[in-house]
Amino acid sequence: MRVPFVKMHGLGNDFVVLDARASAVPALDHTIAARLADRHTGIGCDQLILLEPSAIADFRMRIFNADGGEVEACGNASRAIALLHGAPARVETSGGIIALQPVSGGARVDMGVPRFDWDAIPLAYPMDTLSMPVGWEDLSAPAAVNVGNPHVIFFVADPARVDLARLGPLIERDALFPERVNVNVASVDDGRIALRVWERGAGLTRACGTGACATAVAAIRRKLVASPVTVSLPGGELVIEWDGAGPVLMTGPASESFRGSFEWGDFS
């Protein structure tokens, strides 16, 4: 069975999109997702996105990281799907319902209300999530935010000098985080944020939309920046808005790279 796909990206964070809203796609599991995501023997992507019908929203978006693990949210993929859908939509995700609005060159996404309670991150035991009394080598006192998926944010002098390729997986899989965690290192300069992200199940990516949202929220809570704030990632910039109580709004670009099809049996 040949299955069509769309290859897309948001600031270089790339996706393979399978659309099962109108025509069925065979059952997708973690093994097949990882095989499709492999950059040497598959199509290659940071995340595989499956669109399905929904009983509670316009459609459902399922997100599989490159290692095949299914996750709750992906901000860059949300903008890509807004571009693909081409109209405003409410979308069901495992992290809650989000709202998409296509704009010129990309999309504006309502990512929902961030959560800060220790058991909503989740953490293994109670602690202050605005300045956590924990550390890993030179990285210490992070903030924790759940924006559909879990993030810890370290504010540092220079994110480029942090060995995130080494520290990221150690923190991601620390016992403090029962569902693992996305690791953000950020600096603030002149009201702007510079950010690098180690993504749970995907590793270092050129951009992370939920990471930008979580980091902006943590910086606003610590009174380091004001809303709206520009977040600069290796792949480009996003604008994040948060009023301190309501939903987080993310605006930024997305692009379609190409379309193709593959034989399902080659990956199952």
Rank of each mutant, 00 (worst) to 15 (best):
G209F: 01
P102Y: 04
H85K: 01
N182I: 05
H30C: 12
E263Q: 11
D58I: 08
T230L: 11
S255A: 15
G86T: 10
D46H: 10
A33Y: 08
G10M: 03
G106A: 12
A202H: 07
F59M: 06
R259F: 01
V197T: 15
V162M: 02
L50G: 08
G12K: 09
G112L: 01
R196W: 01
A226Y: 02
P126L: 05
E179H: 08
V231S: 13
D174G: 09
V181R: 02
G235Q: 04
D190R: 12
A202W: 03
G211W: 03
R200M: 09
K7F: 10
R79N: 14
V248R: 04
A22M: 09
L28E: 05
G252H: 04
L176R: 15
D117G: 11
T215W: 07
V113L: 11
L51F: 03
V185L: 03
A120W: 10
V6N: 07
D243P: 04
V197E: 06
G12C: 12
E241M: 03
L204V: 01
N182D: 11
A33P: 05
N149S: 12
S23A: 09
H151T: 10
M1C: 06
D119A: 14
H151Q: 12
R90I: 02
A143G: 14
D14F: 06
I220S: 02
P26R: 05
G148C: 06
E237F: 05
G42I: 08
G42D: 13
A87G: 06
D163W: 00
T31E: 15
M111E: 08
S255L: 13
L11R: 02
W198S: 02
T251K: 00
R180C: 13
D174M: 02
P102C: 11
Q47N: 14
G10F: 05
I81T: 06
L238E: 14
G112C: 01
C208E: 05
V103E: 14
L18T: 08
F154N: 05
I43D: 11
C208N: 10
S94E: 15
V25A: 07
E92R: 04
G135N: 11
A165Q: 15
V103F: 03
E263A: 13
A186H: 00
F15Y: 15
L204S: 00
A194R: 13
D38Y: 03
R200T: 08
E237H: 10
P102M: 07
T210M: 00
L51T: 02
G260Q: 15
F116L: 11
L84H: 12
P159L: 02
G12V: 10
S140L: 07
H40F: 14
L84Y: 14
G69W: 01
L238V: 09
G203D: 07
S23K: 01
V17W: 05
C74G: 13
L28H: 04
V197H: 02
V162K: 00
V181I: 15
R60A: 13
M132Y: 10
G211Q: 00
A216K: 05
L167V: 01
G168V: 00
G86Y: 09
L224A: 14
R200W: 12
F15E: 09
M132Q: 13
V162S: 00
A20F: 03
G191Y: 10
V109C: 12
R259C: 08
V113A: 15
G201D: 10
